[in-house]
């Protein structure tokens, strides 16, 4: 049986990885010259698309804020905090599905760092946070 302490540490590590990726994507959004076009193109197309912002706020910044919120909730650690962290992570899963769909069918380009976030970090965070909530029912 995995202890809650281990799960808590896991959530913190995954959220920190999310901070790193979302932080980088936020940085290149505001400092586009940090991004360069490479063979085949792609990343800059996604970053440059009209879906990269929501009400003027970069989607990457929303992700960054969500990861920071999860980190704060891990530090707080209460039943409410665990529930809120799971809610944020599950929201992220839903939104990640939407973003992947956009890349595949609307923007028609792939952003590697976005995929790392959407396919690895977000699902992992969801599994760990949900596991923590369910653990209270064990």
């Amino acid at each position: 049986m995995v202890s809650d302490r281990a799960l808590r540490a896991g959530v913190a590590v995954v959220a920190l990885a999310g901070v790193a990726v979302a932080g980088y994507l936020t940085y290149v959004h505001y400092q586009p010259e940090a991004l360069i076009c490479t063979a085949g193109g792609g990343c800059e197309t996604v970053q440059d698309s009209s879906y990269a912002e929501l009400l003027g706020i970069p989607v990457a910044l929303l992700g960054l804020l969500a990861y920071v919120a999860v980190l704060m909730l891990v530090a707080w650690d209460s039943e409410l905090a665990r529930t809120l962290a799971a809610a944020i992570a599950l929201s992220a899963v839903g939104f990640a599905v939407y973003l992947i769909t956009l890349q595949a069918f609307v923007i028609d380009a792939w952003c590697v760092w976005c995929l790392v976030n959407d396919l690895v970090i977000v699902p992992l965070l969801a599994v760990l946070t949900v596991w923590r909530v369910r653990r209270t029912s064990a």
Binding site: S50, L54, L55, L62, T83, L84, A87, S91, V133
Partner: peptide, 30 residues
């Protein structure tokens, strides 16, 4: 019951947040 109820609350809140985000993204995109 507490764990399951909390999970349901989290899932419900997440669904609402996703609906709002996707709706805003489609309607009010930059």
């Amino acid at each position: 019951q507490s764990g399951n109820r909390n999970l349901l609350i989290a899932a419900g809140a997440a669904a609402a947040v996703v609906l709002v985000l996707v709706g805003a993204s489609l309607l009010l995109r930059g």
